[in-house]
Amino acid sequence: MEVLPQFIVSGIFLGAVYGVISLGYVLIYKATHVFNFSQGYFLMLGVLLSFIFMEYLPVLIAILLALAVGAAMGFIIHRLAVRPLIGQPLISALLMTLGLAYALQGLAIVFWGTKVRPYPHWFPVEEFDLGVIAISSPVLWGIVATAAIFVAVGLFYQRSKMGKGMRATAEDHQVAQSLGIKVDRVFTFSWVLAALLMFIGALFFGVQGGAFHGLSEWGWKAIPAVLVGGLDSLKGAIVGALLVGTLEAMATGYLGVAIGNIMPFIVLLLVLIIKPYGIFGEVRIERV
């Protein structure tokens, strides 16, 4: 096995994990301008809940049930916690998502505990030897699933009426509202979609990491990725995540601990200096 291609593959996988989480961040930020700190906690809950369902139910039903619960969770959280803050400074909503993060972590500990369990292999887990590299199927499926999610969300944004409404809302809330787009519904839908994405991602990434309450750490690690790509660009979320993931894996492999750890942030700082709104972020034309 060559080492370099292996690093690239694992970097792409890391990028896929970051990518799905970044998509969640972007969806919510784009529509509501709230940065959702509890994103990683959604992922963690997704892993734990789908694990519990799969233990008692047939795989397909369990997955559907988990996704339904995920969507319901996004809906409830938006209605109960985030919606009452409309009209308040955005920074309050930021703090609210942090409070949510604490509550979700607490809920996970109450119902799941602090134990670690292997996630069920609900799809065949095997090793594909491609000559130069060997890819394990969770990695492959994870990458494929991320690509599929990305394409689906992209199409939804481009083609569907709701997606168009969401794009209009992202431009300007008041204008969208005056044009008859139900902005409130768009907000709710963004939260539901983001939670749903995390739960879909959880189905694939849980197999790699096992199921426990510490998975929320991934949410924090994906923050540089989403910023590199640009906070309000779907394309950017994926590209940024792939860039950050690959660079992180390569730096860890070749340059050592210190560099690998802060690589995402070095990339981030460089991007912020050169292209302040991210690689694909929308440039607001105004003097600062």
């Binding site: 916690a81 803050l85 308040q88 609210m96 604490y102 509550a103 500990i109």
Partner: peptide, 25 residues
Amino acid sequence: GQLGSGLGLVVFGVVVALFLIFEPR
């Protein structure tokens, strides 16, 4: 131990949320 530390976090999150909803300023 499990329920205590978990519920502690939940209480924390709920207090912050309630505070922000009722006294955002």
